[in-house]
Write a protein that binds this DNA or RNA. Structure first.
Length: 586
RNA sequence: UGAGGCGUAGCCAAGCGGUAAGGCAGCGGCCUUUGGAGCCGCCAUUCCCAGGUUCGAAUCCUGGCGCCUCAGCCA
């Protein structure tokens, strides 16, 4: 445990209204450790300023959420701020559609950049001036080598590169050429501005990296103002410095770029000295999390858009019914470190269920209906029974549900020949209808042709109203049901993992991850019977369909006549597990 | 045979010379008008391997091994 003054977590306790910070261990990750040390040494005047720097070339996914939670979370804990900065230095791939979705997703997760929304493109002029400064320092030059030649000159991992023949141009010539590059005097790709560092460096990033390229491409913000665009390695550290970022947190693949990051900061006299820290990106089992692949899934119609509920994008997860708190709790629970890791997706599902359990209204819905008639129940009688909305939260109150002679129950809740341990309905067996009565099955009606069970006849015990008797009778099984004449029809969409294997890259020679796509990741059920209250469902409100799963109204396919529900995540299924292991034994 | 990282349970992850936290998964049990939730218990004599230093090593030293990243005018 660190001393109290070393831990801002303790000097700035979270208020009551803050979501629970799910880190019972109280251990501090290596990034916060570094920040604590910097603070102790009095760096940055005791300030902590971070940034979340997405490139607007795709939708945000759960991996970005880890970074967002880290950057905004750290800012909050240390009483600092976190900027939202779009890293839009490559107009060929970027689009406003993406900046809009990114803003929506960050907000949805519950983070606030206030007025600090920035674009690297806002710094193009300043960045250009810095480049001239570098030229004047003799630290950058205009190079006429083609991309192919640059690659050849760069050398390899084990052999040093060789210097460009243009490396020794005079400062005046470089300045002149660079200005003319900006003025549009040279064709695309014909020249580049390069840093003059060390062609023999063991770190390839230091072998005279390109700073500016010529590209006549319309930028989504600066439009046609520029025909030269800065490279990430150059723009990023300087953008950080311009914003006064103290800790520039990024993923591991940029570790090799840190010497270059520091080089720019030390060559140019920036007023602030940002520090880059790298952590391991998130990987999830049964999931693919690279922009290249996600965009491929969308463009080749393997899924129905960026917000397909099977996608790991924040838009997809939101539509699927995930809550921001579940994602945030997940992100803080998995930790931050430097070892490449793959998180079991069961973790995500755990934190989802944990949150949904507290929030979801319990309702009854029958996915695969089986008609059930209570023979000894009066023909035209309808009762209004009380049902609690959420046993985890009595304040959620109760509602009335209609009950009568004809009901639907779930097909899989009846077995003519029950296996051992099955305590749902079977011939002669008494079970409880949730919130209603005890019933006993007396007769099965089958389709004479197919043998399929199409109707059940039962008797009920009038003394068990509400699902209780006073005689201490033990009724183990409880079934959900819906009144047949009152039930509404709904479409229900069941989702499972998009990929068949924990590691989508686990493929046969010559195949790629797409061969592991799960052909059954979406199952559409029609003719589902739901209780009437569900006709008031709104997207974004979580429901628990009792004994089954959490669901939410689909924001795209629902209509007033026919609601469509997405299965967010199943309930834990202990019986399913038992049955599975029984089957294994046989 | 270059450089930079990383190796602690099935999956994450603490640990910072004093005798292996916590979470997920799994497995038992209790409880239950959701086979849900909740509760209780179990789950690393050992930290990639081999030597060394030390009264004492996951932690320090030496030497191996394994994995990841880098040869875009992408980020």
């Amino acid at each position: 445990m660190k001393s109290p003054e070393a831990s801002p977590l303790q000097t700035h306790p979270q208020s009551e209204s803050d979501p629970p910070f799910n880190n019972p261990s109280q251990s501090v990750d290596f990034i916060r450790e570094i920040i604590n040390q910097d603070l102790k040494e009095g760096k940055n005047n005791g300030k902590v300023i971070t940034r979340f720097p997405p490139e607007p070339n795709g939708y945000l996914h759960i991996g970005h959420a880890k970074s967002i939670c880290l950057n905004f979370g750290i800012a909050e804990e240390y009483n600092g701020v976190c900027n939202l900065r779009f890293d839009d230095t490559n107009p060929e791939k970027e689009d406003v559609e993406y900046v809009d979705s990114i803003m929506e997703d960050v907000k949805w997760l519950g983070f606030d950049w206030e007025d600090r929304i920035y674009f690297a493109s806002d710094y193009f002029e300043q960045l250009y001036l810095y480049a001239e400064e570098l030229i004047e320092l003799g630290k950058a030059y205009v190079c006429d080598l083609t991309p192919d030649e640059i690659r050849e000159y760069r050398g390899t991992l084990t052999e040093p590169g060789k210097e460009s023949p243009y490396r020794s141009r005079s400062i005046e010539e470089n300045l002149n050429l660079f200005r003319r590059m900006r003025a549009g005097e040279f064709p695309d790709g014909s020249k580049s501005l390069r840093a003059k560092i060390d062609m023999a460096s063991p770190n390839l990033n230091m072998r005279d990296p390109v700073l500016y390229r010529i590209r006549r491409v319309k930028h989504h913000r600066t439009e046609n103002k520029w025909c030269i665009y800065p490279m990430y390695d150059y723009a990023h550290p300087l953008s950080d410095a311009i914003e006064g970022i103290t800790h520039s947190i990024c993923t591991l693949e940029f570790e090799n770029h840190r010497p270059l990051y520091d080089w720019f900061i030390s060559q140019l006299n920036t007023k602030s000295i940002p520090r880059q820290i790298e952590f391991a990106r998130l990987n999830l089992t049964y999931t693919v999390l690279s922009k290249r692949r996600l965009i491929e899934l969308v463009q080749n119609k393997f899924v129905d858009g960026w917000d397909d509920p099977r996608m790991p994008t924040l838009a997809g997860l939101r539509r699927r019914g995930f809550t921001p708190l579940a994602i945030r709790n997940f992100c803080s629970a998995i930790g931050v470190a430097k070892s490449d890791s793959v998180i079991d997706i069961a973790n995500l599902e755990y934190f989802l269920r944990e949150d949904l359990n507290k929030k979801a209204v319990r309702v009854m819905a029958v996915l695969n209906p089986l008609k059930l008639v209570i023979d000894n129940y009066p023909e035209d009688k309808v009762e209004e029974l009380d049902a609690e909305n959420n046993p985890e939260n009595p304040a959620a109150g109760t509602r009335k549900i209609p009950f009568c002679k004809t009901l639907y129950i779930e097909k899989e809740d009846f077995r003519e020949d029950p296996p051992k341990g099955f305590f749902r309905l079977s011939p002669g067996k008494e079970v409880r209808l949730k919130h209603a009565y005890y019933i006993t099955c007396e007769k099965i009606v089958k389709d004479p042709k197919t043998g399929e069970i199409i109707e059940l006849h039962c008797k009920y015990d009038p003394n068990s109203r509400g699902g209780w008797t006073t005689d201490g009778r033990k009724v183990l099984g409880t079934l959900h049901w819906v009144s047949a004449p009152h039930a509404k029809e709904a479409e229900i969409r069941l989702y499972s993992h998009l990929f068949l294997k924990p590691d989508p890259d686990d493929v046969e020679e010559g195949q790629d991850y797409k061969s592991n796509l799960n052909p059954n990741s979406l199952t559409i059920l029609n003719g589902c019977k739901v209780e009437p209250s569900l006709m008031q469902a709104k997207p974004g409100i979580p429901y628990q369909f009792l004994r089954q799963a959490y669901f939410c109204l689909d924001s795209r396919h629902s209509s007033t006549e026919k609601p469509v529900f997405n299965r967010t995540v199943t309930l834990r299924d202990t019986w399913g597990k038992i049955e599975k292991s029984q089957r294994r034994k046989e």
